[in-house]
């Protein structure tokens, strides 16, 4: 779609998808699996952000916290309470995994909003791996914890016997669709918002429209900050819900 707009009008140049390109950081060449790319850079920055917030922020270990320590504790408490409320007290031992997912997604989403940055979570490759990790972890954990009783998740015992096989098929399909929706929701939200901002930015080239364009970019940016946080929250809470199914598969 970028090329279409480019071809028809010379003054308007739309490249809304260029920001998602994976390019090598040094030199110009093929992207191998080990190549240091902009993906590497922005993931490294998110790791630094995590360390700054949770390690450097909490270094005081003060009873009366500083501002940084307060934010670190709030983040900790937010995810801890989420897993405790949604999944249950027995799931608290999986807290580090859930926290890793949440903190990575929220930092990637927020860093992606910086101008000229690269949003790692806008790529289906990244969110797909995240969702698959959750899916595999939850499924294996379910079978390890409950054995064959885990299959009770698909056998709706509250329904009449006649419709149970049908429901089992539907449940099975919905179970396997989980990682797909889980990953596409996050990547789609990130990509769409950033692309829309870029389109508005393209319109700013026309002087008459530019005030409206800038206003729209500002509004979209505010919305995107909200979306960045909400999508991280949604991803995490769905992980908690799936985890709950694995630990307590009673339907």
């Amino acid at each position: 779609m970028a090329t279409e707009a480019h071809g028809s009008e010379s003054s308007l140049v739309f490249h809304p998808m260029d920001q998602f390109k994976v390019t090598p950081l040094f030199g110009d060449g093929a992207v191998h699996w080990y190549t240091i790319t902009n993906v590497t850079l922005w993931m490294a920055i998110s790791v630094i952000g995590v360390i700054l917030l949770l390690v450097v922020g909490s270094r005081g270990r003060a009873i009366v916290p500083s501002k940084g320590q307060s934010i670190a504790e709030l983040t900790y408490g937010f995810v801890y309470k989420m897993i405790e409320d949604v999944t249950g007290k027995d799931a608290v031992k999986y807290f580090p995994y859930v926290m890793t997912l949440f903190i990575f997604i929220v930092f990637s989403n927020m860093l992606g909003l910086l101008p000229l940055s690269f949003t790692t979570t806008s790529h289906i490759a990244v969110t797909g791996v995240l969702a698959l990790l959750v899916f595999l972890f939850v499924t294996i954990l379910g079978f390890v914890k409950n054995g064959s009783k885990f299959l009770a998740l698909f056998w709706v015992s509250s329904a009449p016997m006649a419709v149970r096989p049908l429901l089992a098929v539907i449940e099975l399909i919905s179970y396997f669709v989980r990682p797909v929706s889980h990953s596409i929701r996050l990547a789609g939200n990130m990509m769409a918002g950033h692309a829309v901002i870029k389109v508005f930015a393209g319109f700013a080239a026309i002087a008459a429209i530019s005030p409206v364009s800038i206003l729209a970019i500002t509004a979209m940016y505010g919305l995107e900050i909200l979306v960045a946080f909400i999508q991280a929250y949604v991803f995490t809470i769905l992980t908690c819900v799936y985890l709950k199914d694995a630990l307590h598969p009673v339907h």
Binding site: V22, V31, H32, W33, Y34, T35, T37, V39, T40, M43, T120, H123, A125, V126, V129, L130
Partner: peptide, 8 residues
Amino acid sequence: FPNQIFWL
């Protein structure tokens, strides 16, 4: 994809 998955 391999690049992104590896670094992820």
